[in-house]
Design a protein around this nucleic acid. Sequence first.
RNA 1: GCCGAAGUGGCGGAACUGGCAGACGCGCCGGACUCAAAAUCCGGUUCCCCUCGGGGAGUGGGGGUUCGAUUCCCCCCUUCGGCACCA
Length: 813
Amino acid sequence: MQRYEPAEIEPRWQRVWEEEGLYRASDDPEDTRPRFYALDMFPYPSGDLHLGHAEAFSGGDAVARFRGLQGHNVLHPIGWDSFGLPAENAAIKRGIHPKQWTYENIEQQARSFKRMGMSFDWTRRVQTSDPEYYRWTQWLFLKLFDMGLAYRKNAPANWCPNDQTVLANEQVINGFCERCGAAVVRKDLTQWFFKITDYAQRLLDDVDTLEEWPERVITMQRNWIGRSEGATVRFAVEGTDDDVEVFTTRPDTLWGVTFFVFASEHPLVPKLAELGGTSEEARALIHRLQATPLTNREQAESREGVRLGVHVVNPVNGERVPVFVAPYVLMEYGTGAVMGVPAHDQRDFEFAREHGLEIRVVIQPPEEERDAASMTEAYDHEGVMVHSGPFDGQRSPESIAKVAQWLEEQGLGRPAVTFRLRDWLISRQRYWGAPIPIIHCDEHGEVPVPEADLPVELPEDVDFRPGGESPLARHDRFVKTTCPTCGRDARRDTDTMDTFVDSSWYFFRYCSPGYEDGAFRREDVERWPVSQYTGGVEHAILHLLYARFVTKALYDAGMVPFVEPFARLMNQGQVIFGGASMSKSKGNIVEPMPLVERWGADSMRLTMLFASPFEDDIDWKLIAGDPDRRPGAHQWLGRVFAAVADSAAGGGDEPMELVRLTHRTIRGVTEDLERFRFNVAISKLMVLSNEMRQVLDAGGAARGAAEALVQMLAPLAPFAAEELWRAVLGHGESVHVSRWPGYDDALAAQETLTLIVQVDGKVRDKVEVPADADDARVLELAHASENARRAIGDREVAKEIVRAPKLVNLVTR
RNA sequence: GCCGAAGUGGCGGAACUGGCAGACGCGCCGGACUCAAAAUCCGGUUCCCCUCGGGGAGUGGGGGUUCGAUUCCCCCCUUCGGCACCA
């Protein structure tokens, strides 16, 4: 009998697969198979693969292999997101070059992927830190620059004092650096931005077309974009010729404005402070605010603020209202100034109470008199407009649009939409990234590097330790260049790009491997739209939003034929340990590769996929806490080996019941894999293998079941399936190029079923009946049931519910 | 606070369109094999009661619809995830 020895089997087939080139996607125009692009989020090379990779790629690979078996021409590529800060930090710590650290890790991960038996098309491998790749990342930058979607401006930015670089808003978590956890501070810097806000509406609208995305990701994207409808209104600043605009979602409350507040960074503030002869106190506050981090919540949640000593005029009623500066107003949202309506906005209410300002009710709740003096909180629900001039008696919120309309007619404002989404800050003051391909010329300003001169290579001999400015700025040979326009001395931009730029387009590059005349060919991308994207939910906003934006921009440039990059998205759950995420500091990290060496890649995959639904978290401690204990998956594979070997050896007729179960299993597993229900698919395979064992032990044959079982195992445990298919069942070709087994619905149907006999909805008996038993027959059987009769007792059956052949319910009352 | 997802045995989890709750696996218990152990195989395993035929309860809690609810509706509780002065 064949013993299951993964340590012997797996490396052997790994070599054979490589020699046979089994997993290459075909670009042959004669190839008429339907195409399937199975994309996995590419890894960051921070060391060897971790358990999260094992989980994600086990699922992604199962999908790719399953589609291949179903007759698709599958593109299943792999690459590395290999620029980025952690490489630099790790390199500094180890005293080596980031390049060395990165590429060693890539090679290690590549070996591990091969050891895991991933069905990657290695000929399409990309690494974002390769000049052949980032050449096109730079091209993308220039394309966006051409389109007016990349621009540079001086603005307060989130600065991480530890990593010594700016961060995108998306990378600041509650005021702390996403990567290192240091408190973020504010710094005024000239930075490059991508104008993602131009696409806010389209990014929001098209989210509705992503029917195959997880609901929670859709919701997160919507919330992040954060669309608000309302109006902008212009207030005149008394004593000047200046106007100041505010955005409000509640123009219906305009008659309740009793004060006005600026963000401290608002450009008008210095002028107004001077005009109002503002106190030392005000100056001190403004100064302090401008030195605090953008995202300092404690600051923002206070209701402090100071009068500037000037007034603005409410355009709807001509009233003068006092002007303040306060930290609760953010420069980044809306216009950086708000109108204060304390009666109907909680923040304004608190501010008014704090500073003794008038509270004026202009939306009267139904059935109830509200008066300002007794209010304990703002009223922000529906009601009737009062003290509102021409709008008295109108119902809010229906009146909001009417007021906005009216403002436009009166020339006081107009309906407006504001988004929470900010432009994407893409420049970084660190070394290990793609240089921004811009040359600064005194004469000609920001001049794009000519496409023919790309890539702007990242020099290796750089002192890359962070120092508050870009390390590249210290590298004279890099910096000094000539202006492409006038040929005079000029300076290269010394910032590098956010690595999310690298990863915003890598899935296009896979379609045109090695292409040297462009980032990709349009026809390749058209041929290979992503069919399935697999990866972690931690990218629900950042990466996915950026990739969607870049795809839309490239669509507008005529370079790709679709507006959404990923039709289907599947998020695997996280692998945690003992209820907590794994981390070095907790000392609970489990390395997958030693387990793969010990128990086999197939066991690792099956353990992962069987543990829970793919999108749910797996607590490794619960499912495989003891590394010395033989995993259940390994045990089962051993039983499968025995059963298949016995089936191959034995002859004779296969019992009809086993044939039927086989067909039923094929039908079920096919459906399950289509819906990524790997855990359920595996359980069905277990049922089939258990039944095979029974049949074999009773002296029956099971060859047909064995063949089907092995094929269905192929996407989930590819090495074991291959060994069984070729070495045990004696097939000449790989199971991975075999044709997914079909099923016959008639055979998949049960021959007999269990009839449930209920009395008053309670199960009283179970009777085996032929699958074609009709209503009369099952009713007869139900009445014949001893148990049912006893349950009925001397009562009368008032109603009979018959669902032949599955159920009869006899109702006595 | 707002948005989203989810609550089923000791554990991970099954259950098609409302029709056998707990598939499958882990763990545990018992047995076989063994001098013994490991490995392997076989059997049992929701809880309570029982005269061993069976009976009762049971899918976070409370209501409702229905012959029948893990599944549909309403209210509540809890957990997880995201966002959070966004004007």
